Amino acid sequence: MAWSGIAASLYPKGRTCHNVFRLEFPFKSDSNSLLNEEIKEAQKIRDAKVIFWDEAPMAPKQALKVIDLKLRDLMGIDSPFGGKIMILSGDFRQIPAIVENGGPMDVVNASICNSPLWPLFKKFELTENMRANKNEKQFTEALLKIGNGETIDEDGCVDIPDHCVVQGNLAEEIFGDLIAEKKFEQLTSRAILAARHDDVRGYNDEVMQMLPSEGEMTFNAQDAVKHGDGELHWHGVPQYFKDNHINGFPSHILTLRINSVIMLLRNLSIEEGLCNGTRLLVTDLRPNVIAARKLLHDGTLSAEKIMLPRITLKHDAGPFELYRHQFPVIPAHAITVNKSQGQSFDMVGVYLEKEVWSHGMLYVALSRTKSWDCLKIQLKKDRVNKTKNVVYPELIAQAI
């Protein structure tokens, strides 16, 4: 299993931790497991000899505690994880568990490496970067130093190689040649990464306009709210929710073109690799279905077309719940650095005019591809081949 859907889809019959242990979603500091001990899935867990958990550093320590308690309960053994062998994998240099409105120490305290269970694990270190080109020793060494915070200067910045810095239009640099030559199937092999959602949306709009306009379609969602009476009201939804973007939620108005790249926002079928974060290339657009081809792990596109339906999604909007009936996708020529975690690209554009603000973001952004030659980076105008890097040394030290 894995904490993220993308990582889970890399394994045969891989599933998310939420799916295996029926963890509440979104998972919060007081969340629990809803796994019923009588169902078939519980028996599969009882029968397992080893449990593999990938992207574990993305999970909060509460998740480790909940799974420990559930395994003790399922096995009837009051010892760590019910006596199961637990193998956790991941990289603490990457983006850790998100703590809403939390500061650096809140993030460090929420990490699994701050769990009372952490000292029970024996640590092993992998030594080869499997994503980078074999001859890119300098690149892989530079990434590790960035991830460890070893090369940060007195201004909190690190150096960026001259040839990676872009002065012109980042969207043109990354996608211009492919679109001009109509090599649309290769669009999924590239991406622009940014730290903030508004910049991601801006670049997606820009790249969408670069694509041929034939077959463009606009999809309007149906919205409803649930008040204290428990009834869904499909009329009178505040205009605020229609006009503004909600992170992790499809737009009320979704405009797509054929050959545009999209990303799923929900797990539709982990077994088929259709999970939160999966990228696809649109092949056809109809009022009630989107036809697309899935990006496979080797970088190619699936031969078969996948039909994506509209579904109803829920968002907790404070005093009431917002329900939106829409396709669970967003344009994904550009994605946030957080969403890129676990993904690989042949070429990456990194927008850093608005710099990174959290642990591991720069490390993740730069490590999504094979070498410095595959990176195009747009920096702040007042930076001369430098950009901010944020590393929480306490997190790295605690994890080791």
Score class of each variant (00 low, 15 high):
N259Q: 09
M263H: 13
L295F: 08
K13Q: 12
E353L: 05
L301W: 04
N244A: 03
V237H: 07
A7N: 00
V237I: 09
I396Y: 06
V289R: 14
S371F: 09
D199E: 15
P238H: 10
P60T: 00
K145L: 12
N385Q: 13
K145T: 05
S213P: 04
V200L: 09
M217F: 06
P80F: 08
L193K: 02
P104F: 06
N129L: 08
K388Y: 04
L193G: 04
V337K: 03
G5E: 00
L35T: 01
T218M: 08
L34C: 03
W357L: 15
V158F: 10
Q326R: 10
N220A: 06
Q378T: 15
K123T: 14
T278W: 01
D153E: 14
H235Q: 08
A8Y: 00
R310L: 02
S371G: 04
Q343C: 05
M217N: 08
F249A: 04
L264E: 03
I377D: 12
A59S: 13
F241V: 13
K242W: 08
N32D: 11
P309Y: 01
V200P: 09
M75T: 12
S358M: 09
G176Y: 04
L71R: 01
T140G: 02
A7H: 00
P309N: 07
L362S: 04
